[in-house]
Simulated assay, not measured.
Amino acid sequence: MEFRLLGLVEVQDERTGLRIVPTGAKQRALLGALVVKAGHNVSVQRLIDELWGEHPPANAENALQLHVARLRRLLSGVESRSVEQHVQHPWIVTTSRGYTLQLAPVETDAARFQHLTDEARRILPGDPEQAGELLRRALSLWRGPALEGSVLGDICAGKAAQLEEHRLTALEMMYDAYLRTGRHGEITGELVELTTDHPVRERFYDLLMVALYRCGRQAEALRVYERARNRLVRELGVEPGPALRGLMEAILHHDPALAAAAGPRPAGPVPAEPVAVEPDLTADDAVLPLCEEIARLHRRIERLQQEQNQLLSRFNELTASTAQRVTAGAGLA
């Protein structure tokens, strides 16, 4: 039996194909919290906080017991329909302090996802093609937002955020693997969507710029940098990090390190890949974005210096005023 968190919280018996989705957000939240904390005791009070937050019912402990009893029946029902299951497994154990779900690490889709991404990360430098396939399989396990449909208290909300970060990292690794195998022409559209959906995640801009450059679309790659910079400044008030700035400079100077990685080659001679020409991008045009950025940085430094001088001047005025008041008070005394 597999407990599934990568989407709507549910249980599936893979032997029979039976799939059970707990009814009600609180039932799903209870199951999600116990699965997240599998093998560890979860106190009654923490589960009450998870299900009801700051507004628990007057009989919260009794209400929790009722939800646990329903969840036990649900899990027992899944097992009873399995033709190969003869001894029921006591999934939820009551302890003196709360409840524990007894669960092996491999019994969740989240664990399978993590195993596949860890293996892909290990082999990515030497076998990017196989790594890309493993990451594609890992990402196919996602059916929607993690722990979807549950009341997200601290336990479920924290795990959902962690899993979403792992999903985005897996996407970054997968497209990195595709670039390493020469598939840059296939992924530009998908990367454009990712930069739109995650406008402050610099790695997606990085991958898109490399893909465009390798397609011979240097001007578009540079415009992606400008778009990334504008979004970061507007959303976060920060400039792009050194990796993205370094990539922009590498593109401007046609750094040989940006050349497309060699993918599997068919038998016989392979014609050179056509490179799109950008007639509207002269050498001066290419350098212009970098010059404009340097000028903007100089202006920003000057503004910061002026603000610092104004604050220092104001501080000196306040100090002098305070000293005068103290002296005048001493004279009156």
Results as ranks from 00 to 15, higher is better:
Glu317Arg: 14
Ile187Phe: 11
Ile294Pro: 00
Val151Cys: 04
His86Arg: 07
Arg300Ser: 08
Ala262Tyr: 04
His89Arg: 15
Gly144Met: 12
Ala276Tyr: 08
Leu208Trp: 03
Pro199Thr: 13
Gln308Asn: 10
Met1Thr: 14
Asp118Ser: 09
Ala320Phe: 01
Val93Glu: 15
Gln308Phe: 11
Gly149Val: 10
Thr181Glu: 12
His198Cys: 07
Ala228Lys: 01
Val9Ala: 15
Ala177Met: 09
Ala161Met: 12
Ile251Ser: 02
Ser321Gln: 12
Ala328Lys: 07
Val224His: 10
Ile294His: 06
Gln324Lys: 14
Ser313Glu: 12
Glu292Ser: 06
Glu14Pro: 09
Leu247Gln: 07
Pro56Lys: 01
Ala58Thr: 13
Leu47Lys: 08
Gly53Ser: 03
Ala261Met: 04
Arg234Met: 13
Gly268Phe: 12
Gly17Ser: 09
Val270Gln: 10
Gln162Leu: 13
Leu290Ile: 02
Gln218Pro: 01
Ala60Gly: 02
His298Cys: 03
Arg229Asp: 03
Gly216Lys: 07
Arg19Cys: 05
Leu116Tyr: 02
Gly241Leu: 01
Leu191Thr: 10
Val35Leu: 04
Gln308Ser: 10
Glu186Tyr: 06
Thr319Gln: 07
Glu54Lys: 12
Glu164Trp: 03
Ala29Val: 08
His89Ser: 08
Glu148Asn: 11
Gly77Tyr: 13
Ala138His: 09
Met248Leu: 12
Tyr205Asp: 15
His40Trp: 09
Phe113Asn: 10
Leu297Trp: 02
Leu74Met: 11
Pro125Met: 01
Leu332Arg: 06
Glu119Pro: 00
Ala228Leu: 08
Arg299Gly: 00
Pro279Trp: 14
Glu273Met: 04
His89Leu: 07
Ile301Arg: 04
Leu124Phe: 11
Asp109Arg: 00
Val106Ala: 08
His115Asp: 05
Leu147Cys: 08
Met173Ala: 04
Thr169Gln: 11
Arg325Asp: 04
Ile294Cys: 03
Pro128Thr: 12
